[in-house]
Every structure is written in C-alpha cells, then in structure tokens.
C-alpha cells in the first residue's frame, strides 16, 4: 500500500462525476480512458426511502502491485518514497500486460497515445503539497486524501454525534431540552416506532447501503457486516 489513504465518504457523494471529469482534464485525456470512476448502484428501497450507492474506484496502489510485476519494460513502477504506483509513459510500449493483470482494471488504455494511463494520485500535485485533482474539486468534498494517521475519522465522528444526542451528553441542541426530546424522537423514527437498535443499523447504511432491504427480504441484516 502507498503511504496515502483516499477515503470516499459515501454518505456525502451525490454521484456527480466531477472527480472523473477533473481527473481527465488534469491528465489531458480525450475520450476513452477513465483513471477514476464513480459507479452508481441503485436506487433501491431502503426502509421506505430510495437509496443509491456511489462507489468510487481508482487504483488501490497495492503493496505488491501485479501490474508492476506484469510490466515487461519497467514502465509500471512503484514509487520508492511513498508507494504510489505510476506508469512512465516514455517506457510504456502499450502491451496492455498491466491492464490484463489488474483485478480492478485500474490501468486504462489511452487510444490517443497508444499507451497506458492510470491513477497516480496526481503525484506532481502531491509533490507540490496539493491534493489529487479528484479530491480537490469533489463537489461535496466527500473524497478525502492524506496520510492515514492524519485523516479525520468521519464515520466515527458522525456516528458519535448521533449517539451523543441519544445519551444527551455534551451536545447542545438548538432550542434546548424541548428540542433534545424532538431529536430523540427523530432518531427513534419519529413516533417511537423504531428502536435504537434499528437506528444503529441505519447508521451502518453508508457502508452497506442495502442492509435494511435484505433484512426485509428475510436476511438477518448483519450478513453484509460479517
């Protein structure tokens, strides 16, 4: 793995594809190659509301990248200093061995140059202290990039905010006590129909957006989590 972590906060992603367009414009690519992609799955009904999952995919920058091993010319490389997997276009002969070897189709074919292009986390930008193009322009800033130990844990923090309201500890709700009660009602499904447990399950939806649906279909609602 590279020294970096690119995290997509799927709860905030609206599937606008701004990341993809900015990536391509920044790499001066024409039609065809797509070094990063957001693929929408859905909508499906989850607890009575439509939900669509937007899955961001680029390159995982593997610890042992098969594309590097497959490359016969040494064009595909893993950068010594931070583990970024990148392709040197001067050495690429367009054999497509890397494309064939990657389980996630990260290397992309560029018909204009007859060579491969792939996500390199915009390493020229990183070296200037900037973030990758996709992260920089992301409409909702749902893409986050950095060293893993410096990244905020958005899921934990979001979950904590909700739990903190339930316990009424250390959280100020505008409007005071009356609003705290409303907030508890809200989180409990308005009319007290839902249990806290269900709400906890709902909190998991951003990772496994269709858990609730599967529960309705007879699953235990946990199977995706295991």
């Amino acid at each position: 793995m590279s020294d970096y972590y690119l995290f997509q906060d799927s709860e905030k992603c609206i599937g606008c594809h701004s990341c993809e367009v900015a990536c391509k414009v920044n790499k001066n690519l024409t039609q065809g190659p797509r070094p990063c992609r957001v693929i929408g799955v859905g909508p499906r009904s989850v607890g009575g509301v439509p939900r669509t999952a937007y899955v961001f995919m680029s390159c995982f920058h593997c610890e042992n990248p098969w594309c590097v091993a497959a490359c016969p010319t040494g064009a595909m490389q893993k950068r010594e200093k931070d583990g970024i997997v990148f392709v040197d276009p001067d050495l690429c002969v367009g054999c497509k061995a890397c494309i064939a070897s990657c389980p996630w189709s990260a290397p992309q074919w560029n018909p204009e140059t007859g060579k491969v292009v792939k996500c390199d986390y915009c390493m020229d930008r990183i070296d200037q202290g900037l973030k990758p193009a996709c992260v920089t322009v992301c409409t909702t800033q749902c893409l986050h990039f950095g060293k893993p130990d410096e990244m905020p844990n958005i899921r934990q923090e979001r979950h904590a905010r909700k739990v903190a309201v339930l316990g009424n500890i250390g959280v100020t709700i505008p409007g005071g006590e009356a609003d705290v009660e409303k907030e508890i009602l809200r989180l409990n499904g308005q009319n007290g129909e839902g249990s806290c447990e269900q709400n906890m399950a709902e909190d998991s939806q951003p990772y496994f957006p269709f858990v609730e649906q599967e529960k309705e279909q007879g699953g235990n609602g946990k199977k995706n989590l295991s």
Binding site: C16, H17, S18, E20, V21, A22, V25, N26, A133, T136, V137, C138, T139, T140, Q141
Partner: peptide, 24 residues
Amino acid sequence: FLQGSPHFPAMKGAVCPRGAAGPA
C-alpha cells in the same frame, strides 16, 4: 488547473462536473 474559489467557504474549492469540463 481549475477549481472552485477558496475564498467562498461553501465552494470548498470544488466545481461540479460541468465546471470541471470548462477547459474542454
């Protein structure tokens, strides 16, 4: 490079896909 203005907090430096396609 083209992005949202950092001087407008709610822009968050972002552009939508159409904005990102301006250079194209």
